[in-house]
């Protein structure tokens, strides 16, 4: 008998700034070996719809926030992650990473948290810079002032890979937020606990309600609903199976979603810090104005 019994945490969904259980009442046990680590909420199709509704409602205001303000809020998220280092590391560690076939360097749970924080800071910095990298002035042959600017695409579904559970999520989510989109995260795979903890990070770091929504779920069950949802404007996923990628790409034909499924991503690469990761989640708007009287 221990002297003091641990107080375990109940992990819930994160929708519109609140932490509801799944409306379906469903949960899924998360096991490490034979030990049950937690019972996570198993989000339903209705939870997905609620999350999209919240993300849509938050989209205009987040898109209209100044880039400086968005950068500060993302930086605040990183600060909060720094404070939750231990909890995040334990969340990453509680389910051993699946055996990888590639010879990629494995990172320790602590290292994964460090890299996740650093990546978020990188994209906090991008918030007021990518527009100058991705947009431009155009030298048209006529008396016109013509320029191309970037605008957020809207509501983006972020589909986390199986691993790494935290770095994968942050790498896919940060560019989406930095560009002024709102996100609905589908956290499936063997270990969605770090995603559930990230909801608590968002809730305490000035991220407006609805800008980030996190659903722990059985990914395979919800993908077709993501694909068919007409109020989701874009999808960001990585290292998914071919059938999963196909289901998501079918959503392109539904409402011309911008679907970006990255294959074979090594999340510790510095390439993941590039503004090119933002590019699929902005729309290029070209404005013409006469420059003559």
């Amino acid at each position: 008998m221990p002297d003091r019994l641990d107080v375990l945490k109940t992990y819930k969904l994160f929708i519109n700034g609140a932490f509801p259980r799944s409306e379906s009442g469903r949960s899924m046990p998360l096991c490490a070996g034979k030990r049950v680590m937690a019972h996570l909420c198993k989000a339903s199709r209705k939870d997905l719809r609620d999350a999209v509704e919240a993300a849509r409602a938050a989209a205009d205001k987040w898109a209209a926030a100044t880039a400086y303000n968005r950068g500060q809020i993302l930086y605040r998220m990183a600060e909060m992650m720094e404070g939750k280092r231990r909890e995040l590391s334990e969340a990453v560690a509680c389910v051993p990473a699946p055996a990888s076939k590639s010879r990629r360097r494995a990172v320790s749970p602590e290292d994964e948290v460090t890299r996740s924080i650093d990546r978020l800071i990188c994209f906090a910095g991008w918030a007021d810079k990518y527009a100058q990298v991705l947009g431009c002035n155009n030298p048209v042959s006529g008396p016109f002032y013509n320029f191309t600017i970037t605008e957020p695409t809207g509501v983006v579904a972020v589909i986390t890979p199986d691993a790494p559970p935290l770095l994968g999520l942050i790498t896919l989510l940060a560019p989406v937020l930095s560009a002024g989109n709102t996100a609905v995260v589908l956290a499936g795979g063997p270990n969605p606990i770090p995603a559930a903890v990230l909801g608590e990070v968002c809730a305490t770091s000035d991220v407006p309600a609805g800008v980030v929504n996190i659903l722990t779920c059985d990914r395979a069950e919800l993908l077709k609903f993501v694909s068919g949802h007409r109020d989701i404007d874009a999808v960001h996923g990585a290292n998914l199976s071919a059938p999963d990628a196909t289901i998501l790409r079918e959503g392109v034909a539904e409402n011309i979603k911008r679907v970006t499924i990255r294959a074979d991503v090594n999340f510790i690469d510095a390439d993941c810090d590039s503004a090119r990761w933002i590019e699929p989640f902005v729309e290029m708007k070209t404005v013409w104005h006469p420059a003559s009287v």
Binding site: N138, P139, V140, S141, G142, F144, N146, T148, D233, N255, I256, E283, M284, K285, T286, V287, W288, H289, P290
Partner: peptide, 24 residues
């Protein structure tokens, strides 16, 4: 919209990106 013409319309140029938002 991907192209916005202000006080003009239907202007095109090889140097000016053209294309749509949403279902365009």
């Amino acid at each position: 919209a991907g192209v916005v013409w202000c006080n003009t319309y239907n202007k095109f140029d090889p140097a000016s990106p053209f294309g749509g938002y949403k279902e365009s």
